[in-house]
């Protein structure tokens, strides 16, 4: 039994929807009725069935459509995928990790056959069947990082480890929460996080860096983050901010349920074996307010989180203009009853 891949759009007519099953597996990010930064890193181990953590790299019903949207973004702006010259080896590491995990987790959709460095990769949902020589870039249509991440949901940053820091020296970023790979490539861990308010003062990044530098292969880790997006738009890039920024002014009490989305990022960290680099996949999940409130607990809790969010965070996340409208809309779903601990929908 395979995944039922949907045909839908993340631009223009925005036909994106979650099926009821997809809503139930949504990685709701709040374990209590409030939110503040924390390092919140945990081991990335395969989790319960029918959750997004069942496999190390989740493939879901939006896969084919998300990959189509990525191709559109790259055609418009090839600078969204870049790799500094010393990062090719890390690209091969990434390709190996993604292919082996996908083939292991979803054998009905992906297969990988290895004979020494002669590899045969089949991606049935996207109709790809390629034979290539591992390590030889001239045998693939793109460099290894771009090749495999055009077939993998989520953004990917690849971090070189040297001189006591992590350097973002390669990546593909087409579904980002408002940051520019093209501008940030080559920066270290503190520099590319520079625009994040409050967290530096809290020492969050220093602790996180120490942890990540010691991360070993075979022991991946993950954390989550969240923001909100108006319309189910994956490409909320700074590059196109002048095109989508006006979306934020279109929220009315009547359209909150369909237009306003909670956007959750699952950030993962893998030590790459040949290059000793870190792979930093950032997987994005979207859910409409109409879909979110089908869980009474999530509705109550998200109302309280959004209402009580510190103003600096609301500004950084770009919520200021429409937060009151959304809080007002959500308040109809909050009877003040206590919520149970944990993330699940009850």
């Amino acid at each position: 039994m395979g995944i039922n891949f949907k045909q839908e759009t993340f631009r223009d007519d925005f036909s994106f929807r979650n099926s009821p099953e997809q809503v139930r597996r949504f990685p709701f990010p709040f374990h209590e009725d409030g939110y503040m930064y924390s390092v919140n890193i945990e081991p990335h181990v395969p989790g319960a069935k029918n959750t997004v953590f069942e496999h190390l790299f989740d493939v879901d019903e939006h896969y084919v459509s998300e990959m189509h949207d990525r191709a559109l973004v790259l055609a418009e702006d090839p600078l969204r995928c870049q790799s500094l010259p010393h990062m090719t080896l890390a690209g091969w590491d990434t390709l190996e990790l993604l292919m082996t995990e996908k083939a292991k987790s979803y054998p009905e959709h992906f297969s990988l056959t290895r004979d020494g460095d002669k590899w045969h990769w089949v991606n049935r949902p996207l109709g790809i069947d390629d034979r290539f020589t591992f390590g030889d870039t001239s045998t693939l249509p793109y460099d290894p990082l771009e090749y495999i991440t055009r077939q993998s949901q989520g953004d990917f940053a690849v971090l070189d480890q040297r001189d006591g820091n992590l350097w973002m020296d390669a990546g593909i970023v087409t579904t980002q929460a408002d940051w520019s790979l093209d501008f940030d490539i080559g920066m270290n861990f503190f520099e590319w996080h520079a625009p994040v308010p409050l967290a530096h003062e809290m020492g969050v990044f220093k602790r996180a860096l120490k942890f990540l530098m010691a991360l070993q292969q075979g022991q991946p880790a993950r954390r989550h983050n969240w923001t909100m997006t108006i319309n189910p738009r994956l490409d909320t890039s700074p590059e196109n901010y002048h095109k989508w920024g006006t979306d934020r002014t279109t929220v009315t009490p009547e359209n909150v349920g369909d237009k306003v989305h909670l956007r959750v990022e699952i950030q993962m960290f893998f030590r790459l074996p040949r290059s000793n680099a870190l792979l930093f996949p950032i997987r994005c999940y979207l859910i409409k307010m109409d879909e979110l409130v089908t869980s009474p607990k999530w509705a109550r809790r998200f109302h309280r989180v959004l209402r009580d969010l510190p103003p600096e965070l609301a500004e950084y996340k770009g919520l200021v203009r429409y937060r009151p409208t959304v809080v007002e809309w959500l308040s109809k779903y909050d009877d003040g009853a206590p919520t149970s601990p944990g993330f699940g929908p009850d």
């Binding site: 901010y241 002048h242 006006t246 002014t249």
Partner: peptide, 27 residues
């Protein structure tokens, strides 16, 4: 010709500060 907010965010690779449209939400 876009009107840019000049941020303190700096890229060594470009040797430049980042400019982001200041009135994207309301031109």
């Amino acid at each position: 010709g876009l009107l840019l907010l000049v941020r303190d965010h700096y890229s060594r690779r470009y040797a430049a500060f980042q400019g982001v449209c200041i009135n994207a939400e309301d031109p």
